[in-house]
Design a protein around this nucleic acid. Structure first.
Length: 409
DNA sequence: AATCCGGGGCC
DNA sequence: GGCCCAGGATT
């Protein structure tokens, strides 16, 4: 097989190769290395980088190569789309301009900066890592792959991304994007949902990456994966490296990558209780020692083992508020609305109830502080970080208030 | 090796 | 309703 792939003859040969391709654990990486020999490899890099330098996306974290900036962007971009990240990235950098600022940041302020972005352990791990940098690396972001990998919250993908972009280390950055692209480039049929198969793509990445411009190479793969080689609507025929994309040359783009499906989310049932005191303030509580939405604030949420009727729910909520909130509210007999919230592994079905205190029952300041509780003025911005599911509960409450107002007119 | 951890966009 | 997204930590 030659280095050229653009004729129809070759497509047949490539198709044949796809059926017999195998991956070696230790390299030289790909069985069909004669297809992607050194010569072809350099031609591929040149074609990819030329396209990237002409067409690359203009993104805030591409304005400079400050390791701290690259780091923030890479953590935010984990499982999160570019358009979602951009406003968070700019705000975060203004709030915490340096690694030292992040290390010393107040935790509540940190969570507020991440509010709504999801996977909240990311930002807590970043603060741990910021302190690692202060104590273990003299306040300077480490510049070797192993040291970068040693930081909390940084795995093989992120270490490769930061190392290549900020320090020109020739390490691949293998995420779902890169696996899809490499799968199509080489016709790799290994299931990209299986953890063990990631190392196959790391080997390929180490082999094909430009040693002169590793950061640009990795980012070019990312841009390619978000455009011509996207998961949803790829346009492989227009790809700047179509001539190197074996799956496409064989007319089999849609067979790659292979990805097994994940199991579906389980339903959970909750009562949400909006309790107003005589000042019109509402009780919220910080989730502590929780795995899900830890350190975030919500109104009292009471989980039911299964779907229950309103009278059972009210009974349960009254017992709960006595036990864990030291108050005795009057709960309305019917919910004012419903919220459905989907996580990757759980689906929450929530009935939202309203309640009032008979008289001033506000707990002492000392009690509120010790139990991570607070009374807030509803629908007014504050410093408490809410998860999105709480924002949905606030919306139900606001809709109820608007409805009442209309009735009174 | 599988499961847990968020949220939004798209079909 | 399911899939996808610049994944890592935990078990």
């Amino acid at each position: 097989m030659t280095n050229q792939h653009s004729t129809e003859n070759q497509s047949i040969e490539i198709s044949e190769w796809l059926n017999h391709s195998e991956i070696s654990d230790l390299g030289p990486i790909i069985y069909g290395v004669q297809v992607w020999g050194t010569q072809t490899n350099e031609a591929f890099q040149k074609q990819l980088l030329t396209w990237y330098h002409k067409e690359k996306r203009d993104l805030p974290w591409r304005q400079d190569k400050t390791p701290y900036h690259i780091w923030i962007s890479e953590i935010m971009l984990q499982q999160t789309q570019v358009d979602t990240v951009i406003p968070y990235y700019n705000r975060f950098l203004n709030l915490f301009p340096t690694i030292a600022d992040l290390a010393d940041a107040n935790e509540g302020k940190l969570m507020k900066a991440w509010e709504g972005l999801g996977y909240y352990s990311r930002v807590r791990n970043m603060q741990v890592a910021a302190n690692q940098i202060q104590t273990d690396f003299g306040g300077v972001f480490p510049n070797t792959y192993e040291d970068i990998l040693s930081l909390k919250g940084i795995g093989p993908y992120t270490a490769g991304a930061i190392g290549s972009i900020a320090f020109d280390l020739p390490k691949p950055a293998i995420d779902g994007n890169a696996m899809r692209v490499f799968s199509r480039l080489f016709g790799i049929s290994a299931d990209i949902a299986k953890a063990k198969n990631r190392k196959i793509f790391e080997k390929i990445g180490e082999y094909v990456i430009s040693k002169d411009y590793p950061g640009d190479f990795n980012q070019a793969i990312m841009d390619l994966g978000s455009s011509y080689e996207s998961a949803k609507r790829p346009n492989p025929e227009g790809s700047p490296v179509k001539g190197f994309t074996l799956a496409t040359l064989a007319g089999r783009t849609d067979e790659f990558p292979v990805k097994s499906q994940k199991k579906k989310a389980k339903p959970h049932y909750y009562d949400a209780l909006i309790i107003q005191n005589t000042d019109g303030k509402v009780l919220i509580k910080k989730r502590t020692d929780e795995k899900l939405l830890n350190q975030l604030w919500t109104v009292p949420l009471i989980e039911e083992p299964k779907e229950v009727n309103a009278s059972e729910a009210v009974k349960h909520m009254v017992a709960e508020t006595k036990e864990n909130y030291a108050i005795d509210p009057i709960v309305m007999k019917q919910p004012i609305g419903q919220v459905k919230h989907v996580f990757s592994h759980q689906i929450w079905h929530i009935n939202v109830y309203l309640a009032y205190l008979k008289s001033t029952q506000n707990q002492p300041e000392e009690y509120l502080k010790n139990n991570n509780q607070a009374w807030i003025i509803p629908n007014r911005p504050n410093d408490y970080a809410y998860p999105t599911v709480q924002m949905k509960i606030w919306q139900v409450f606001q809709a109820y208030l608007n409805n009442q107002f209309d009735k009174d007119k």
